[in-house]
C-alpha cells in the first residue's frame, strides 16, 4: 500500500524533499518514522518527531492504512 508523507522544518531540509509517497507493508506510525530516519537521514532521535495522520496527532502504535496523509513535525524553538 501507499502512504503520503509531508516533512516540516528541519525534517524537510534533511530529507531534501517536502513530500513523498512511500510504498509500505502494514506497519505502525512509529515504525514508518524509524524507517524514514534511516533511509532519509533525518538526524533526529525518533521520540522527538511527532506524527499526525489525517490531520490529527496519533499514538506510536497507530496502524497505517492505504492512502494515509502523514505529517512529520519536529520541535521548533526559534522566536
Amino acid at each position: 500500500m501507499t502512504v503520503h508523507v509531508r516533512y516540516f522544518a528541519v525534517l524537510r531540509e534533511r530529507a531534501g524533499r517536502e513530500r513523498e509517497s512511500v510504498e509500505i507493508e502494514p506497519m505502525t506510525a512509529r515504525e514508518l518514522v524509524d524507517r524514514l530516519i534511516r533511509e532519509r537521514g533525518l538526524g533526529l532521535p525518533s521520540p522527538l518527531i511527532r506524527i499526525a495522520v489525517g490531520g490529527a496527532f496519533v499514538e506510536d502504535g497507530s496502524v497505517l492504512a492505504d492512502g494515509d496523509e502523514i505529517v512529520l513535525l519536529p520541535p521548533v524553538a526559534g522566536g
Partner: peptide
C-alpha cells in the same frame, strides 16, 4: 505534544 526536550543544538534558533 513534545514530551522530550531536544538535545542542545539539534533544534536551531533564529
Amino acid at each position: 505534544l513534545f514530551p522530550q526536550s531536544p538535545p542542545e543544538g539539534c533544534v536551531g534558533t533564529c
